[in-house]
Design a protein around this nucleic acid. Structure first.
Lengths: 189, 189
DNA sequence: AGTGATTTATACAGTTCTATATAAAATATT
DNA sequence: AATATTTTATATAGAACTGTATAAATCACT
């Protein structure tokens, strides 16, 4: 991928997160990225295309990072589930954390027919599905149910953290997650 | 309050929730409300003023409704806490539910110096504080901690419901809340 | 019916935004 | 060095948005 294109992606991701997507114009993006609109529109057909690619990249980066961490940490499915929130906390508190794109994008594009909304909704579903597969491997009965509960905690915590940085929400989300996971594990098949 | 003013507030609240705040122009609001911009700007100094009043009204309506429900349902503090999520579910699934304003507003206005962001952040804090006071009355040790966890579940569920209507998130949020509340109640002072 | 306040209709100034056109400059390739 | 590609600089079309000006129309009240 072109250096300029990835630079634009990084800058756009940053600005979208800190100023909002609709409030960030392409002029601002190219100015911060140190390039021009002509170049931006060479690599992205439209602003919407840019938004979609930013979301896609952010989600893939997160999923890859999380999956690598989990698979290299332990092979026991139940332990993976337990460590999930530790890694999520590590991700959220890392200096290059720019927020979970799909959480904000769905708020800024509430129309269910909007491509940006659809992508963020799909990413949210994928993430929940990933947690559910971990729960299934740990032989938890209602894997989808637990996955939903954990994702609620996670998304709530990310939002709280976005709303007020250093809120300590992640700490209590972890405690709650542990209670829910432990409870579900004692009712395994 | 003037009929037109409250009509504008209702319409704006509806449009902000369904199309997003930044994506909704004042022209659209007055067209749907069946009035003109002149009248809108008579009652609201600016669009930002309108947003703030919409948020304020939405939050007060919710808090008043919830408090009335809780105080008239039971006098036992621990039962209030248990019934909290039942009423919240009732609110969220009611036909005139237009979403929790402060959740989306903070996403659309991420800048912490923005008045809209500040108000939604304050409302989020107030709601958490309200839950915490219920937990305190029920003699729960870490009342603030439980309140934070419950609000994470709540905000996560509202967002999930906004992202995909009829997701059933509230049902699992309630189950998780019950587990957390029961756990906290067994460790009371 | 007549007076005063409210509301509408319409136009528009001024800004911002997405997206494109065109030509010059810089960079890479042969 | 000459050619081809990429990138910049600049201008601008065209739409959308906030907010205001002005005059006509409607409404409330006496």
């Amino acid at each position: 991928m072109s250096l300029l294109k990835s630079k634009i992606l990084v800058v756009a991701s940053d600005l979208f997160q800190t100023r909002g997507i609709n409030s960030t114009g392409v002029d601002t993006i190219v100015a911060v990225a140190g390039t021009t609109k002509m170049t931006l529109y060479k690599y992205f057909r439209s602003k919407e295309d840019l938004i979609l690619e930013v979301l896609e990249k952010g989600h893939q980066d997160f999923q890859n990072w999380l999956n690598d961490k989990l698979t290299s940490s332990t092979k026991k499915p139940s332990e993976k589930l337990q460590k999930l929130f530790d890694f999520i906390e590590e991700w959220v508190t890392s200096p290059n954390f720019r927020g979970m794109g799909f959480i904000k994008a769905s708020a800024e594009f509430p129309n269910e027919e909007n491509p940006v909304h659809q992508l963020s909704s799909e990413q949210s579903r994928q993430f929940r599905q990933y947690i559910s597969s971990l729960a299934s491997e740990a032989n938890i009965q209602d894997a989808d149910g637990l996955a939903l509960q954990l994702s609620l905690l996670f998304e709530g915590a990310v939002q709280a953290e976005q709303m007020k940085r250093g809120s300590g929400a992640m700490k209590y989300a972890k405690k709650a997650a542990k209670i829910l996971i432990d409870g579900a594990l004692t009712h395994t098949v």
